[in-house]
């Protein structure tokens, strides 16, 4: 925590390397949350870039006693929400994205299995609302506690539990569509 405070001070003084060091432990998590929210690598990077600019701009507002991780994820969440809203407004862009979505993360080196997994994730997550998706990703993909998730979401723990419950139920139903029920009845 002391190191974090010192790094914040240095970054406030304009030290770029201190800023980089401050964000380094969370860079992968931030990118992946944005990636799962958009389903597109480039858009995820754009969201992270915007979030980082905001973090740098508002760093003086950050109080050293507070949890930097929660604060960073909250900013990423807000930027991702803004991005989602803008995207929703423009239906034409949305359709374009859908077309690109299937091949967004595709690169020649990615094998068929990865593409298949990506499609499965998209099939499961597409029925979640942005809030449900964010709660699910924070709790189950990033390993945040319910309290931490609530802080990032700016809501109560009860609200997080409700959204998480809905998200998991929807995911379970989608999952059963991918793998028909017969498979489970044999295993039970």
């Amino acid at each position: 925590m002391k190191d974090e405070a010192a790094l914040v001070d240095k970054a406030l003084g304009g030290d770029e390397s201190a800023f980089e060091e401050l964000l380094h432990p969370y860079r992968k998590g931030m990118l992946n949350i944005a990636y799962q929210m958009t389903g597109n690598t480039e858009e995820a990077r754009d969201i992270c870039q915007t979030a980082m600019i905001k973090v740098f701009k508002h760093l003086k507002r950050f109080r050293p006693g507070k949890n930097l991780k929660n604060w960073l994820y909250k900013i990423v969440k807000n930027v991702a929400n803004d991005f989602y809203r803008k995207k929703k407004r423009d239906e034409r862009l949305k359709e374009e994205h859908k077309k690109r979505g299937v091949s967004a993360g595709y690169s020649p080196e990615k094998d068929f299995l990865n593409r298949e997994i990506k499609e499965k994730i998209e099939a499961c997550l597409k029925y979640l609302s942005p809030r449900e998706k964010m709660v699910f990703l924070l709790r189950d993909a990033e390993g945040f506690s319910i309290k931490e998730t609530a802080r990032v979401m700016g809501s109560s723990s009860q609200s997080v539990r409700t959204h998480l419950c809905r998200a998991r139920r929807k995911l379970r139903l989608e999952f059963e569509k991918i793998y028909p029920k017969g498979r489970w009845s044999n295993e039970v």
Binding site: D140, A141, R168, W184
Partner: peptide
């Protein structure tokens, strides 16, 4: 039975998300 479906679906989806992590 329903609980097992929840467990399996959660584990699988977490696994997919893990394998799809980018850096």
């Amino acid at each position: 039975r329903e609980y097992k479906v929840y467990i399996q679906s959660l584990q699988e989806i977490k696994g997919w998300l893990k394998s799809e992590r980018i850096d």
